[in-house]
Computed example of a mutant assay.
Amino acid sequence: MTPVELSRTVLHAVRRAVDDGELSVTVPERAVVTAPGPGGCGDYATTIALQLSRPAGQPSRRVAEILLPRLADADGIRDVVVTGPGFLNISLAERAQADLVTAVVREVGARGAAYGHGDALAGRIVALRVPYEVRAEVVADAVVRLVAAQGGRATVEHGEPVSLRPVPAPEDPAPLGADAARWALLHPAPHDRPRITADHLVQRESNPLFRVRYAHARVRSLSRNAGRLGFGAEPGPLGLDSDTGFDSGSASRELLAALVEHPRILAAAATHRAPDRLARHLVTVADAALPFLATVLPCGEEKPSAAHRARLALAEAAGTVLAGGLSLLGIDAPEHL
């Protein structure tokens, strides 16, 4: 079950509640489903109950409780839990989860680095006016790339009134080198003061840029090693056991959630002129990918199986997303690190 299909399922639950006379609202055109936030659980969460609370004239948690049983009995859903003021947290059935892995991996494979590109800004011209300052220039360049990836076109001019003014860099970032300098300027939120320090160059886990590039390089290395072992990537069930499988703490689940979120993050980064959102999302993808990568290749005398091919496919999808995201930020994704 893809996010689009789950959104339709949520709307169907709303429609059933309206038909049963338990909610008096106009069924919205879409329901947003995302990865669960802090305090959430399961595979997805939706704020549809909060959205409908005011028009329904009922507390959002009560709206969620009305929708819960109608969601819980839908095909492909294993469990639904209400948290906080009315967030509906949805766990997919194992078969639906496996189908989602296959669908996402196939889509990433088909679209390559363009996975997540869309038409959120189709036909739009975004005019950026920036000051003569290095961070503003770099952020504007990234915004131009992001807007283009969403079907729009951005123009950059200098002068007043300024429409894009991130907190300036405290010093010249050029000594860091092109890639680390861009990361230092793009990773912080625009209202945060960037750190221009050698920390961006260290090759260890404390450096987010290193983790992102290292995860990409690890994926490429796994693909080469799999080739030497005589097998390639093929989407399918991951075949992971209860210790590393689809429980809420598993890397595979977290990695899948991060890949599913990628199109939404790209659209938001372009719409809000916020490349920092993409930079931080790439860190999320890398941090989910790195533990999972240890499960890809056979161990010892173990023979390559369909599960190994499927895990390699998911790993390669992560590598594609990391490379494509870094490219949008104007940063290189090396094959070796």
Rank of each mutant, 00 (worst) to 15 (best):
P304W: 05
A307S: 14
H272W: 11
T320H: 06
E302A: 15
L322E: 10
L266A: 12
L312C: 07
T284Q: 08
L282G: 10
A268L: 15
G330A: 01
T271K: 03
A310Y: 09
K303F: 06
A306Y: 00
P304S: 02
L278S: 06
L326G: 02
A288I: 08
A313P: 07
E316F: 02
A310M: 06
A317V: 15
E301Y: 01
D287P: 00
L282K: 04
E316V: 14
E316P: 05
P304R: 04
G319W: 09
S305F: 01
G300T: 06
A313Y: 07
L282Q: 07
L293R: 00
L322T: 09
R277A: 13
L293V: 03
A268V: 08
L297D: 03
A294D: 15
R280M: 05
S327F: 01
P298R: 07
R311S: 13
D287W: 04
L329A: 09
T295Q: 14
L297V: 10
A310K: 13
S327H: 13
E302V: 03
A274W: 11
A267Y: 03
A315I: 11
D287M: 12
L314K: 09
L297N: 06
L329Y: 04
T284N: 09
C299N: 08
V321N: 11
L326S: 02
A288S: 15
A286D: 13
R309H: 06
A267S: 15
D287H: 04
L297T: 06
L290N: 01
L282R: 03
A268T: 12
T271I: 05
V296C: 04
A274H: 15
A323I: 06
A289V: 08
A279T: 14
A267Q: 14
G324D: 08
S305I: 03
R277W: 14
F292D: 00
L328N: 01
A318M: 12
D276F: 12
D276R: 04
V296N: 01
T295Y: 02
L266V: 08
D287F: 07
A268K: 09
T284G: 05
A288K: 03
L293F: 10
S327G: 12
A288G: 09
L329F: 02
L326A: 01
A318S: 15
L266T: 06
A289C: 08
P304F: 07
A306C: 00
G300W: 08
G325K: 06
L326H: 02
V283I: 03
D287C: 08
A286L: 11
P304Y: 05
